[in-house]
Design a protein around this nucleic acid. Structure first.
Length: 465
RNA sequence: GCCGGGGUGCCCGAGCGGUCCAAGGGGCCGGCCUGGAGAGCCGGUCCCCGCACAGGGGGCGCGGGUUCAAAUCCCGCCCCCGGCGCCA
């Protein structure tokens, strides 16, 4: 049983180098890893040999009846022990370094991933829906569609759509990021009334559809240990995204993906149990440390939101089909809402270390005149399962391997809300609620049903003028 | 949080300083047997090094320590069970 990256490193290191190059990383990392691995194997052989001699002597001591001989053997072992100590120290050192370097290696980039160091190189694979395009934004729209050779039908409008942030705070007055900033900091928000119902309706919609497809519904821990976290993400993400609980070995999850991956850590999974399809629901907490001033307005990029997540444990030979299934599931949900979108194959330089390939689903935002990410689906192959020690046991000859794992957003609450606020607003400021959500609002007396209406007076919140 | 009991391979479970391989089951895999299946019998079934064979090393919740020798003794941490306390 071995990790695919380690196996390649030994058998075909050029593939690893090439993959690193595609990611814009130093291919020398592969050579360094390989050298360390070889050095480790060399030292291990030496140490094992000396340990063997030690064991042989120890057994002789155990059998020795004569106290004189016993004393002599113990002396001999003591001398050997000093030698062993020294070599073992060296081995520990190399072993630790090897481990560190191996764990820093990103997944191998899949051949179908477009090569490039920025999202400019993301490759649109399909478009769906009929975006509303404000007259003055037509050029921008065409640059995001026809430039890639896609003829996308659109509806030209001559009234300027209001951005989601202003919809939230000025038109509907059902969100307050200023007060939230005072109370918690920037990138936090208060949502009120109809938008809270909408948030929960979106989540229910997603779990309803996915459980209907046979995905097992899970409510996971919202905090996890360091050990698990390091099994699912790389250092980069750790620094940028993760909140730590002070004085405890606990971290707030940035997505349900993390605890869902942990669910089978150190487990063996029989091949006929696979695929295991899960749908998790949780809040997500993100520092957004690397975001700078991007998307400071509104609730597009925030420190907390709700998300329904798909997570699958799969056999290696089926994982690529399942990646397609996951992105299709997400598309069905977004189609159901009626939001126009495109799917892009994310460029190599923009892939996270865990992913071999990633699709983003980007929804058209009429007020920003841009397609923006609301869903992300990755095949992490055996990158996470190696770290979390999640094995696959084959029936045939009981061979062991690592399972493949995949993750994908189903619905992320705040981003989907921003998309709804921009796409389904009417010129008079009314926001039409997607029909598919209505059954999840129906049972509640005070929940909105058809639409969300602009604030009339000045009273949505006490003290606001 | 306190007191007591406990964490052993995929699962159950014995071992509680050396007599080498972590006993014995179960499940699973392979083989024999069978027209086929079952039963039965034989073998395999933690990880690593070794192309392979032979062989070897490590591993008994995690991390340290004592010893020539640790699953077994000592220390710290984590988790599970029972009781008490506290508490949504």
């Amino acid at each position: 049983m071995s990790w695919s990256v380690l196996r390649l490193l030994r058998e075909n290191p050029e593939v690893v180098r090439e993959s690193l190059r595609k990611r814009g990383m130093d291919p020398g990392l592969a050579d360094r890893a390989r050298m360390l691995d070889e050095e480790w194997r060399r030292l291990k052989r030496l140490v094992d040999e000396i340990r063997h001699r030690h064991n042989v002597l120890s057994r002789q001591i155990a059998r020795a009846r004569d106290p004189e001989e016993r004393r002599r053997l113990i002396e001999e072992v003591r001398a050997l022990l000093r030698e062993r100590e020294e070599l073992e120290a060296k081995l520990r050192e190399v072993e630790e370094e090897r481990r560190r370097v191996l764990l820093s290696l990103p997944n191998i980039v899949h051949p179908s991933v477009p090569v490039g160091d920025s999202e400019e190189y993301n490759q649109p694979v399909r478009y769906w829906g009929r975006p509303r395009v404000y007259r003055e934004y037509l050029q921008a729209f065409l640059e995001q569609t026809e430039r890639y050779g896609f003829k996308v039908p659109y509806e030209l409008i001559d009234w300027k759509p209001v951005g989601h942030a202003d919809m939230l705070e000025k038109v509907l007055r059902l969100g307050d990021t200023l007060k939230a900033a005072e109370v918690a900091g920037s990138r936090f928000y208060y949502l009120f009334e109809d938008l809270v119902w909408l948030d929960f309706a979106l989540l229910l919609y997603a779990i309803d559809r996915l459980t209907a497809k046979g995905y097992r519904l899970v409510l996971p821990p919202y905090m996890i240990r360091h050990r698990i976290l390091m099994g699912v993400i790389d250092m980069e993400t750790f620094k940028d995204a993760i909140y730590k609980i002070e004085g405890e070995d606990l971290y707030l999850i940035a997505t349900a993906e993390h605890p869902l991956a942990g669910l089978y850590s150190n487990e063996e999974i029989m091949e006929d149990e696979l695929p295991i399809k899960l749908v998790g629901i949780s809040p997500c907490f993100r520092k957004e440390a690397g975001a700078g001033n991007r998307d400071l307005k509104g609730i597009f990029r925030v420190h907390q939101f709700h998300k329904v997540e798909q997570y699958v444990y799969a056999k290696p030979e089926e994982s690529w089909d399942i990646l397609e299934e996951l992105i299709r599931n997400a598309e069905e949900l977004v189609q159901g809402l009626g939001l126009p979108y495109r799917v892009v194959n994310v460029a190599s330089g923009e892939l996270g270390a865990p992913a071999a390939k990633k699709y983003d689903l980007e929804v058209w935002m009429p007020a920003q005149a841009r397609y923006r990410e609301i869903v992300s689906a990755s095949n992490t192959t055996d990158w996470q399962s190696y770290r979390l020690n999640i094995r696959l046991v084959r029936r045939k000859g009981m061979v062991r391997e690592y399972v493949h794992t995949l993750n994908s957003t189903a619905i992320a609450s705040t981003r989907t809300i921003t998309a709804i606020l921009e796409n389904f607003q009417e010129p008079d400021g009314v926001v039409v609620i997607p029909k598919v959500l209505r059954r999840y609002l129906e049972p509640f007396e005070r929940a909105p049903k058809e639409a969300i209406y602009p604030a009339k007076g000045l009273q949505p919140k006490k003290g606001q003028k």
